[in-house]
Deep mutational scan, measured.
Amino acid sequence: MQNSHSGVNQLGGVFVNGRPLPDSTRQKIVELAHSGARPCDISRILQVSNGCVSKILGRYYETGSIRPRAIGGSKPRVATPEVVSKIAQYKRECPSIFAWEIRDRLLSEGVCTNDNIPSVSSINRVLRNLASEKQQMGADGMYDKLRMLNGQTGSWGTRPGWYPGTSVPGQPTQDGCQQQEGGGENTNSISSNGEDSDEAQMRLQLKRKLQRNRTSFTQEQIEALEKEFERTHYPDVFARERLAAKIDLPEARIQVWFSNRRAKWRREEKLRNQRRQASNTPSHIPISSSFSTSVYQPIPQPTTPVSSFTSGSMLGRTDTALTNTYSALPPMPSFTMANNLPMQPPVPSQTSSYSCMLPTSPSVNGRSYDTYTPPHMQTHMNSQPMGTSGTTSTGLISPGVSVPVQVPGSEPDMSQYWPRLQ
Score class of each variant (00 low, 15 high):
Ser121Phe: 00
Arg59Asn: 05
Ser119Trp: 00
Tyr143Gly: 14
Lys86Leu: 14
Met142Trp: 10
Gln89Lys: 14
Ile97Lys: 06
Val84Asn: 07
Val48Cys: 14
Pro76Ile: 06
Asp23His: 08
Val78Gly: 02
Arg44Trp: 06
Arg26Glu: 02
Asp144Lys: 08
Lys91Ile: 05
Asp41Pro: 02
Cys52Ser: 08
Asp140Phe: 11
Lys55Ala: 02
Gly58Arg: 00
Val16Phe: 05
Leu127Asn: 08
Asn114Thr: 09
Asp104Met: 13
Tyr90Ile: 05
Leu146Arg: 06
Ile71His: 07
Gln135Asp: 13
Arg77Lys: 15
Glu133Val: 13
Met148Cys: 10
Gly73Ala: 00
Ile45Pro: 01
Gln136Leu: 10
Glu109Ile: 11
Pro76Arg: 05
Leu107Lys: 05
Leu107Asn: 08
Arg92Val: 08
Ile117Asp: 14
Ile123Lys: 03
Asn50Lys: 00
Asn50Pro: 00
Asp104Trp: 00
Asn17Pro: 00
Lys55His: 13
Ser65Gln: 14
Glu133Pro: 13
Leu106Ala: 08
Met137Ser: 09
Val111Cys: 10
Lys91Ser: 05
Arg26Pro: 01
Ile71Asn: 05
Ile117Glu: 09
Pro95Arg: 06
Ser6Asn: 13
Ser122Arg: 02
Asn9Glu: 01
Cys40His: 05
Arg77Asp: 00
Arg77Trp: 09
Asp23Cys: 15
Tyr90Ser: 13
Leu107Phe: 12
Ser6Asp: 13
Asn9Val: 01
His34Gly: 15
Arg77His: 07
Val84Ala: 06
Ile97Asn: 07
Pro20Met: 01
Glu82Arg: 09
Ser43Cys: 05
Gly12Asn: 05
Leu130Val: 15
Asn124Leu: 04
Cys40Leu: 05
Asn3Cys: 14
Ile97Leu: 12
Glu93Thr: 14
Arg105Asn: 11
Arg105Trp: 14
Gln135Ser: 12
Ser121Gly: 06
Ser54Asn: 15
Val8Ser: 04
Glu31Met: 10
Tyr61Gly: 06
Arg92Gly: 10
Asn3Ala: 10
Arg44Pro: 03
Ile71Gly: 04
Pro39Gly: 04
Tyr90Gln: 13
Arg128Ser: 08
Val84Arg: 15
Leu106Arg: 02
Ser24Glu: 12
Ala88Pro: 01
Lys55Tyr: 02
Arg67Ser: 11
Val83Asp: 01
Ala88Ile: 03
Cys112His: 15
Ile56Arg: 01
Leu107Tyr: 07
Pro81Thr: 14
Asp104Val: 13
Asn17Arg: 00
Arg125Gln: 03
Glu82Lys: 06
Phe98Ala: 15
Arg147Trp: 09
Thr113Pro: 14
Gln89Gly: 15
Gly36Ala: 07
Tyr143Trp: 11
Asp23Trp: 11
Met137Lys: 11
Gly51Lys: 06
Thr113Ala: 08
Val120Met: 03
Leu127Ser: 14
Gly141Tyr: 11
Glu93Ser: 14
Ile97His: 13
Val8Cys: 06
Asp115His: 04
Asp104Thr: 13
Met137Arg: 08
Ile29Asp: 01
His5Ala: 10
Glu93Ala: 09
Pro95Asn: 14
Gly12Arg: 04
Ala33Phe: 10
Trp100His: 13
Arg69Cys: 08
Val8Ala: 03
